[in-house]
Amino acid sequence: DETGKFLVLALYDYQEKSPREVTAKKGDILTLLNSTNKDWWKVEVNGRQGFVPAAYVKFL
């Protein structure tokens, strides 16, 4: 159920650099879980949760 969740689009490829991050490919649609940090947003992609740089994604 996606009610109340926001989707964001990956603008660039991002390769995770730590276990707390997730890899995303340009064009991926990610479920935004938390955007309270202006630099790192928590997302879910391909069943995995983790952080990506906020500058790499935008709201749909």
Rank of each mutant, 00 (worst) to 15 (best):
S35P: 07
F6R: 15
R20G: 15
D13N: 05
K38M: 09
E2T: 14
V8G: 05
L9I: 15
F6N: 10
E2L: 14
L33K: 03
A10Y: 07
F59T: 08
E2M: 14
K58N: 06
K26Q: 10
G4H: 13
Y14P: 03
L11H: 01
D28V: 05
T31Y: 11
P53A: 06
D1A: 14
L30E: 01
F51P: 00
I29M: 05
Y56K: 06
L32R: 01
P19R: 08
V52W: 05
R48T: 06
V8C: 10
L11T: 04
G47H: 03
K26D: 04
W40T: 00
D39L: 13
R20M: 13
L33H: 02
S35C: 15
W40R: 00
F59P: 11
G27K: 04
V52D: 01
L33A: 02
Q49D: 05
D13G: 06
S18C: 12
K58D: 10
A10T: 09
V52L: 13
S18Y: 06
G4F: 12
D39R: 11
K38N: 10
F6A: 10
L11Q: 04
L30Q: 02
R48W: 08
E2S: 14
G47C: 05
L9S: 02
G50D: 01
T36A: 11
R20K: 11
S18N: 11
R48Q: 07
K38Q: 10
N34V: 10
A10R: 02
L32C: 07
W40I: 01
W40Y: 05
K58C: 15
K42G: 03
W41D: 00
Y14S: 02
K58S: 11
N34R: 05
N46A: 09
L60D: 02
Y56L: 15
E21C: 12
K42V: 14
V45Y: 06
V43N: 00
K38V: 09
Y12D: 07
F59L: 15
R20D: 12
D13S: 07
K5W: 12
L60S: 04
K42C: 15
K58V: 14
K5E: 09
S18M: 06
K25N: 08
Y12Q: 11
R48L: 08
G50N: 01
N46P: 01
L32P: 01
K17V: 08
